[in-house]
Design a protein around this nucleic acid. Sequence first.
DNA 1: CCATGGTAACTTGTTGCCAAGTTACCATGT
DNA 2: ACATGGTAACTTGGCAACAAGTTACCATGG
Lengths: 239, 239
Amino acid sequence: MGIHKEAVIIDDLIQQIIEKKLLPGSKLPSENELAEKYDVPRITVRNALIKLEERSYIYSVQGKGRYLKDKSIPIQLSLTGKTSFTEKMKSMGHDLKTVTISCKKILFEPKIYDILQAKETDTVYQIGRLRIINGVPMAIHYSYVSEHRFPTIKQDSPTIHSMFDYYRQQGTERFSSRKTYLSITFPTLEEQHLLSCNSMVPLIILETDCVDQDSNSILEYTKILYRSDQFKYDITTDP
Amino acid sequence: MGIHKEAVIIDDLIQQIIEKKLLPGSKLPSENELAEKYDVPRITVRNALIKLEERSYIYSVQGKGRYLKDKSIPIQLSLTGKTSFTEKMKSMGHDLKTVTISCKKILFEPKIYDILQAKETDTVYQIGRLRIINGVPMAIHYSYVSEHRFPTIKQDSPTIHSMFDYYRQQGTERFSSRKTYLSITFPTLEEQHLLSCNSMVPLIILETDCVDQDSNSILEYTKILYRSDQFKYDITTDP
DNA sequence: CCATGGTAACTTGTTGCCAAGTTACCATGT
DNA sequence: ACATGGTAACTTGGCAACAAGTTACCATGG
């Protein structure tokens, strides 16, 4: 029953934060005061406050109270445009690091194999990379590559810094993509660790493919998980 | 302390659901069984299960137990392309309804006024519309229009079905946009009611502007809130 | 006057117990 | 044989009492 009253309390507190009736660093009323104000049991107030804490609005100190965090304005990042992601980040004064975190064969998945035009007997590698901006992990980037298309991908992968550079070396001059899908998920434990965030941070999933524009052959299937709490993404489509 | 163990339980249960070790409709182990299995107090298991319920993985019946929902596959919707949103939906066999929910003056907001090139003394209207697909509320669409640019917007708004049609009537032939931003939020109480979803459903925010391509004058600022739990969005950029 | 320690009144964090609902089973009476 | 009702053992739901940490204040003793 308390679930709706909890939502009301959350909504009201967030509203107060937005309207700056509560200021960053300031102390919130105690659980008991709020319980009396909203005429609900303390546990309901508690659950509401814990949710606000998980959403990074507040933090708590046992014996003292709960305090408002100064919520950092999200950093704007550009995802579209002609130049490469690395170059765009550099030009905007951001420090971008990319760390390869994994390279492993995947089990047969119809969806991915279909996109890669791979047979069930083919081997497909998943190459995982972590994008770090100004020290903050920003995205997990998975590239799925068919060994049939790139026979030396396994031994090449440790030395690859940019997949685009790699494909260029392999003969591709112009890139293109057929489909791009947007969806949302919550991070698994592993993703929470990699992105150093908690389970309440929604992740933006971008799924796309990458094809050689001239030969029209598929290069890779890409799945990127962006964290949504620290960044705002510019997806302007230039004409 | 229990917050991390809670995350482990959530992760483990979701993993079991994905791997189909738990089947839709089947009963989960009781709170006490899970508490023993993970060696945690019952309250920790409880909190984990409540989160899973809020994320629509399961539902509970007092006295009986908790059961797995059959999670519906998200509907794919196309957001890009030359044709209008309405036409695209129709062509994909979806039934799209649009309901106007509000039309009101807004208080001065520098960001919006700046984009609309409006003076602080100008009046800006927010026109809110609800997009409903196959009976499921899908998005809240806010158009911000300057009265200075469209003096009769107030009396016209009730009869407007499509903003694009309206702008065409007002002389615009070709549309364009300058910037599009993507971010994520959780719904306010009002948004929860409009979209008939709970507070744990992330909303995708798309912010963009709409300009007359020939005169290069601003028509409106648009902010759309898409629910992310029922839909998957095709944002393919056609060449 | 000042330093120390104790106490009381607050805060958040934890836990265990009881209430409420469901099911299965069994004893009892017709 | 069968219907009824009671009971016990489960389930989830709710809450009050307790634990732990912080602060402020005051009494006490040097």
